[in-house]
Write a protein that binds this DNA or RNA. Structure first.
Lengths: 347, 347
DNA sequence: ACTCACCGTGGATACGTTTTCATGCATCTC
DNA sequence: GAGATGCATGAAAACGTATCCACGGTGAGT
C-alpha cells in the first residue's frame, strides 16, 4: 500500500513535480495546467504529505497544547477553543496533559521539540525557566489561563528591556511570553466585594497549586480584612483538596464565607461542608472559581466566578497562529460573577 | 537559530552519521564510540528530529485521538487514559474534536491522513464507511466507547470472512476494526432490573445521537415492558437534549423512571424535572449514564452507571500501540451501577 | 526585425533521518 | 599460515516536499 506522491501526480498529469507543487501551493501556473493538475490530483485522491513538507521547510506545522488536566471541565472547554481555531486553520493539535507537574511539563516540552512543533499554547505548571529551552529553540509560546511563578530575578539583565513596555495591560508584565488570561483580579475582587456586601468579614480562600495571581488578588481585595491563616493552598490531587478544605473548616469554625479557587476545590468544599454538617449558605457562603455544569445542579446551586474557557483557548490559538505580524503582549478576558444560591448574609 | 542535526554530532564526534544513528537507535557499536557519541550528543543537546525519521520510515509516529467533545468529562477521562499510555510510550497524541458530526469527523480523518498518523483511536460519530479511506491507507484504527452504526450490508462480500471468527466477545462482531467498549448491555440491564425491582414499570430511555447499542440493550432489558414511545433520542446539542427531555416528561406524565444515556442528557433531565415540579426520586426515579463529579453533588445525589473512562482510553492506546503482534478483536470493560439517591420505589 | 522582459515550466537540490551495502580490520578455524 | 567469519564503520540512497535556477517561448517596445 504505497502512498500516492506528488511525483505520481506529476507523471499522470504530464508535468513536472515543481508545477504540481506550485499549483497546490497557490503559485503561478497557467489556467490550463492548473485545471489538469487539479483534476488528476483529485482523481488520484492525492494528499500532500505533511511530513515531507515539514521536513522541507524546517518546521512542523501544527500547534502543541499543554494543559494540567483534561478531566477538568475548564481545560476541556479551553481545549475545545484551541481545537476550533486550529481546525479552521487546518492545523493539527498535539495535546499533552501535565498533571500540574513541572517535571512532566518539561518532558512534554521536550517531546514537542522533538516533533519540531514550533507553536505551543500552555497552561504553565512549572516556573518560567522550564520554557527557556523552548523559546531558545525558536518556539512561539503563548501562555493561557495562567502565568508561570515569578522567576526570581536572574543574573541575565533582561529587566530594562522588559520595563520598557512594562505598564501595559496585564497585571504581571515581566514575562516576555504573551499570555491570554482571565481577569482574575477583577473576578476575585467582585466576589470578595459581593461577600463583603453580604456582611461577611472572615472570608477564607482555598487555592490550588500555582495560581499565585488569584491569591494575590484575594489579598488585595480583602485589604485590612486579610488573614493569612485563612488562605490555604492544596496540592493538585483530589485528596489533598479534601484535606485542605477539611483542615480549614475544622480549625477555623469562625469563617463564614469561602472562595474556592477552582472547581476541584469547590467540590471538596461542598463535600466537606456536608460532612461537617455545615449548611450552605446558612452556615457557610461559598463562591467557586469556574462555572462547571454541575454548579447549577448542586444543592444549593453554586455562585461562581465564570471564566470564558472556550474563548481563552480560541484567543490563545489566534495569538499563536498570527504571531508573525504584531506581537501583542497579552490579552485579558473578563470574568463574570454568576450569582446562584450558595451565598447568604452573615449568620 | 539552526537545529543541531545528526551530522553535527557526527562531525563533532569524528564518526559517520550512520554510527550516530545506530548508537541512538540501540544498534551495534563499539563501547568506546558509543560512549563518545553519547557524550557529544548530550553536550550538544542534540534531539533527533521526529520529522526526518518519520519521512524516512514512511510513517509518522504518534497516535491520533478523535472524541466527540472534550467538554464531556467522560471523554476527558478517556483522553487522559490515552495520553497516559502514549506518554509512557513516548508517542505524541494529535487530538481532534468531532462534535458528533460525521462530516467533521471525515475532515479530521483526512487531516490525520495528511499528517501520516497511522494509528488512530476514535469514538466514531459517523458510519463505518467513513473509515474506509483510513483503513485503506493502512491506518491502524481502534474504536473506543462506541462502534459505528451498522453499515447496511454492502456489495463487497466481506461477510464470510467476518463470520469466520464472528462469535467472539463483543456484541457486534461485524466490524473488522477492534474496539474497546464498556459493557453497555450489562450496564443497562443492571439499571433496568434495579428500577424494575423498585416496582417501576413505565421506564423511559433518553438517548443521544448514535449509541445504538445502549438503546438496543434497553429494549432487550425491558422485554415485554418496552414501550417505543418512551424511547426518545435527542440530538447532540444542549438545547435538543432539553427539548427531548421536556417533551418526554410532559407528554407522558405516567413515566415513573428514566434512564438517561449520557451526562448531558442527565443534566437536561434533572433541570427539566425541576422546572416541571417533579421531585426526584419522589415523582421520578433517575439513572444516568456516566459517573461525573457533579453526580454526587447533585440534589439528590444521582444513581449512575459508571464507565471506566480512563481505562477505556488506556486500553485502547495499548491496543493501537501493540497492534503488531496479535490482533485482538475487541475488549469489553465492566460497568458499575453506583446507587446514590435518585431512585425510589414507584410512587 | 531585434532585443528585452516576462511568464510558465521542469530539473535539481536540500531538509534530517534510517538502512543497506561495501570495506577494512581483527579474530577464529582447519 | 591462509582462508573464512565476524564486527565496527562510513558512504550513499531514499523518503516527499518546496524552492532556486535555468531554459524556452511569447509579447511588447524601440
Amino acid at each position: 500500500m504505497k502512498r500516492t506522491t506528488i511525483k505520481d501526480v506529476a507523471e499522470a498529469a504530464g508535468v513536472g513535480v515543481a508545477t504540481v507543487s506550485r499549483v497546490l501551493s497557490g503559485g503561478s501556473a497557467s489556467q490550463e495546467t492548473r485545471e489538469r493538475v487539479l483534476a488528476v490530483a483529485a482523481h488520484l485522491d492525492y494528499r500532500p504529505s505533511a511530513v515531507g513538507r515539514n521536513l522541507r521547510q524546517q518546521r512542523a506545522g501544527g500547534i502543541g497544547l499543554l494543559v494540567p488536566d483534561l478531566t477538568d471541565t475548564l481545560y476541556g472547554r479551553l481545549a475545545e477553543g484551541v481545537l476550533a481555531c486550529a481546525r479552521s486553520a487546518g492545523e493539527p493539535v498535539v495535546v499533552g496533559s501535565t498533571g500540574d507537574d513541572p517535571e512532566l511539563e518539561a518532558e512534554l516540552i521536550g517531546m514537542l521539540l522533538e516533533q519540531s512543533v514550533d507553536r505551543v499554547i500552555a497552561v504553565p505548571s512549572g516556573d518560567a525557566e522550564a520554557w527557556g529551552p523552548a523559546i531558545r529553540a525558536g518556539m512561539t509560546v503563548v501562555f493561557v489561563g495562567e502565568q508561570p511563578q515569578e522567576d526570581e530575578p536572574s543574573d541575565e539583565p533582561l529587566d530594562d528591556l522588559l520595563m520598557l513596555d512594562g505598564l501595559r495591560t496585564p497585571p504581571r508584565p515581566d514575562s516576555a511570553i504573551p499570555a491570554v488570561l482571565a481577569d482574575d483580579r477583577s473576578g476575585v475582587r467582585t466576589a470578595v466585594q459581593y461577600l463583603k456586601g453580604l456582611g461577611h468579614r472572615r472570608i477564607a480562600y482555598l487555592g490550588g497549586p500555582g495560581r499565585a495571581r488569584r491569591v494575590a488578588a484575594f489579598r488585595e481585595a480583602m485589604g485590612t480584612l486579610a488573614d493569612e491563616e485563612l488562605i490555604v493552598s492544596a496540592g493538585g490531587s483530589r485528596d489533598s483538596a479534601y484535606a485542605a478544605a477539611s483542615g480549614l473548616l475544622q480549625s477555623r469554625g469562625d469563617v463564614t464565607a469561602l472562595v474556592a479557587g477552582g472547581s476541584a476545590l469547590g467540590e471538596a468544599a461542598v463535600l466537606t461542608a456536608r460532612e461537617l454538617g455545615l449548611r450552605i449558605p446558612g452556615d457557610l457562603s461559598l463562591v467557586m472559581y469556574d462555572d462547571v455544569p454541575w454548579a447549577e445542579l448542586c444543592s444549593p446551586p453554586l455562585t461562581v466566578i465564570a471564566q470564558p474557557g472556550q474563548d481563552l483557548g480560541y484567543r490563545a490559538a489566534e495569538l499563536v497562529l498570527r504571531s508573525g505580524a504584531r506581537r501583542p503582549r497579552s490579552v485579558l478576558l473578563p470574568t463574570e460573577l454568576i450569582v446562584r444560591g450558595s451565598c447568604g448574609p452573615r449568620r
